[in-house]
Design a protein around this nucleic acid. Structure first.
Lengths: 132, 132
DNA sequence: CTTGACATTGACATCAATGTCAGACTTTAC
DNA sequence: GTAAAGTCTGACATTGATGTCAATGTCAAG
């Protein structure tokens, strides 16, 4: 598929897809005419990249993170010492973020449930349970 | 305490503390001489603000989020319809981030455990279990 | 074959979060 | 009391993630 379709399916602007590619987060096979030519696997990949970037990770970190996810699929993953150290230190930051966001999520749910807007919450739950 | 000490205790640069204040995320009582004069409660607050910002939330969102956490402490929290809607829509994004980060966290742990760097992981666990 | 929609690259603009510096004032340490 | 260190405000610079535009090329539909 071409970049336009990929963008539509991921909700990520073509501009950003190219940017991520430039940052080395994305491979981009080319068709004979020079157009980028993506496959299904790229849809997942782009979603994942965008998700991590939106979660506040710099592209530089996302890069090693994803390289590592690729490695994790292997039976006997290898990982240079230096990368392992970077990941170990990032791990703390990631856990902090999770804790911070989790707390906010719980607070939001709690407040919505306890105010007169509980309906919004159940509407949303209904939507996510049966996504169109 | 003055801004320097607050900065030291939170790991957040004074410059940023002032910035957060300017964005309305922070109150800043002043001493007679004009210096900002913080109490213990501000330490927590600043950590929370910085945490959310690092988790990729724009200050504008952090602001309503924290206002709401304050409200959540009340017996009968109130919340204007418009704010409730904003929060409901942010909720999805937050959940996405959590999922994304959780997955990365698990992958990191998994890879570290399965490579020759498992030691890093246990060292870290030891540190976080008994923080200095 | 032409027109319109989409792609390519590269340059430039923007925005939010930070860093940094200058000039004036306060406080701390000697 | 003087010097060093910390604080204030305000301006300017930088960085990373994006938006936008221009000039050119490709493709699909009429």
């Amino acid at each position: 598929m071409k970049i336009g379709e990929l963008a539509e399916r991921t909700g990520v602007a073509p501009r950003l897809v190219r940017y991520y590619e430039q940052q080395g987060l994305l491979s981009a096979p080319r068709a004979a005419n020079g157009y980028r030519d993506y496959g299904e696997e790229h849809v997942e990949r782009v979603r994942r990249v965008a998700g991590l970037v939106q979660a506040g990770l710099p592209t530089r970190v996302v890069k090693v993170l994803l390289e590592m996810e690729d490695a994790a699929a292997m039976a006997r993953p290898t990982c240079p010492r230096q990368v392992a150290e970077l990941l170990t230190s990032e791990l703390g930051g990631i856990e902090d973020r999770i804790a911070c966001l989790t707390r906010s999520r719980d607070t939001i749910r709690d407040v919505l449930a306890r105010t007169e807007h509980a309906a919004l919450l159940s509407e949303r739950a209904a939507r996510t349970a049966a996504p169109a």
